[in-house]
Nucleic acid binder design. Structure first.
Lengths: 138, 138
DNA sequence: AATAAATAGTTGCGCCCGCAACGACAAACC
DNA sequence: GGTTTGTCGTTGCGGGCGCAACTATTTATT
């Protein structure tokens, strides 16, 4: 039988899959190796930080980090236990809750940021034409 | 404070992360929705199929699908229980084992292949310039 | 040859996730 | 106003993964 994969799009897809697995693993190891939060935690903290008033509804947060609602509930549980996030009741909608950055969460985000940025630029940016490497304006 | 993300490489990285999450979810749903094996299973079956003699050493397989050795052990356990794969002792190295496609595994791979290819071309290929869409030579 | 170091694969353990079901609430409909 | 439908977030459950430790075997060292 001929090889199943003989198509540019499918080759690219497989490269995409392996690149994602290796890159996320490498970036996560940079973060945790430097004593920072994990990549998953960082994504959540950053999303909350970028939201209006540094707070985000749970379902919006779940959408933004591409996690199920239940998955986000547990993750926020952990971050709340770690003191990085806290929940706040939503005044308009008594069903809803906000995730809000605590001061510790803000500090953890700021501490992780340079590690994250450097790792992404080096590992991800370096894997491409690195045409933007001199466009750093951090 | 200024927004933390103001860099082309970092924007691209975040798009990369969300694209991966959404695309793998969508491709997996196409496969399972059509009664085929999951995406993770498909990757393993395809890797074994492409290997020499349709068999692959466990550690090579783990590397190829970017899984830990223990993770691959469990995954092959499940596929063996499902009758899609079987283990064979390695004659040269008595520590080693091969994962080998069974006839059922081969059939499952062939059944999933067109669904997989169509999903990847449409969802992944379509997300780009689709310049290769007419280069299909399946 | 004898021993030390490295490698292959498996297992116990704990973590993290998605699905389905649930209770609380809001919005739409009549 | 009361009922139906939809949405928000949480929980029980089971699946799937990585890390560290382990056994068995190979390879390197002396």
């Amino acid at each position: 039988m001929a090889p199943l994969i003989c198509d540019g799009v499918l080759d690219a897809w497989r490269s995409f899959l392996t690149a994602h697995a290796r890159l996320t693993e490498a970036v996560d190891q940079r973060l945790t190796g430097a004593g920072c939060v994990s990549l998953g935690t960082f994504d959540v903290l950053l999303s909350v930080h970028e939201a209006c008033d540094h707070r985000s509804r749970m379902h919006e947060l779940a959408d933004h980090v591409v996690l199920s609602r239940s998955g986000l509930t547990r993750l926020v549980d952990r971050l709340e236990a770690d003191g990085l996030l806290r929940r706040e009741r939503c005044p308009n909608d008594r069903r809803g809750a906000f995730a809000v950055l605590t001061d510790d969460g803000e500090r953890a985000l700021q501490a992780a940021w340079p590690v994250y940025a450097a790792a992404v630029r080096e590992l991800f940016g370096g894997a491409f034409g690195q045409g933007d490497d001199d466009a750093r304006r951090f």
